[in-house]
Computed example of a mutant assay.
Amino acid sequence: MKVKILRILLDRWHAVAAWTWDAQDETCGICRMAFDGCCPDCKFPGDDCPLIWGACNHAFHLHCILKWVNSQTPQPHCPMCRREWQFKA
């Protein structure tokens, strides 16, 4: 019994990929926009609008939490759980 082997030469290959953030929620607790989208200050999702986690494990868009932290005095708190805000190390 003979086995024939088929060989194919590829001229082009187009890869498609998808990504999602690994956050507990689907939306930012500040702006309520989806994490797979972007914050109101950005035009496109991705590297320019990353997620930032706090020590309490709540995630927010970078721009949203920076505005929140800068608006709180004297010590900022997490907008979700009200614990003292610290960026996750």
Rank of each mutant, 00 (worst) to 15 (best):
D41I: 07
M33G: 08
C39Y: 01
D47N: 09
L66E: 13
N57Y: 10
M33Q: 15
M33E: 12
I30D: 13
N57D: 14
A34D: 12
L51V: 11
F60L: 09
D47H: 09
P40Y: 10
A59D: 07
D47T: 09
F60N: 02
A59I: 00
P50T: 03
L66M: 14
H58P: 01
W53E: 09
T27N: 09
H61V: 00
N57L: 07
N57W: 10
C42Y: 07
N57G: 00
P45S: 08
R32Y: 15
G29I: 05
T27I: 14
F60Y: 12
H61N: 01
H63G: 07
I65C: 03
H61L: 08
P45D: 02
C49H: 04
L66R: 15
P40I: 06
C28A: 13
I52G: 01
C39W: 01
P40Q: 14
C28E: 05
K43R: 06
P40W: 11
C64E: 00
I52H: 03
G37Y: 04
H58T: 04
I30Y: 05
H63F: 06
C49D: 04
F35R: 04
C64G: 05
P50I: 05
G46E: 04
C38N: 08
C28V: 11
C56K: 09
I30E: 04
G37R: 07
I52S: 09
C38Y: 07
F35D: 04
H61R: 01
G46T: 12
I65M: 02
R32K: 12
D36C: 06
E26H: 12
D47F: 11
C28R: 00
H63M: 11
D36W: 06
C28H: 09
L51W: 06
H58G: 01
N57M: 04
D36G: 02
N57A: 08
G46M: 06
C28N: 08
H61F: 15
F60T: 10
G29H: 14
I52T: 10
G54C: 11
D36P: 08
W53L: 12
I65W: 11
N57K: 11
C38V: 00
A55S: 11
C64L: 00
C31P: 11
F44G: 04
L66Y: 09
F44A: 10
F35W: 05
P40L: 13
F60R: 01
L51P: 00
D41E: 15
P40D: 15
F44R: 13
G46A: 11
K43G: 10
D47W: 10
F44Q: 13
D41C: 02
C56A: 12
A55F: 02
F35Q: 00
I30S: 10
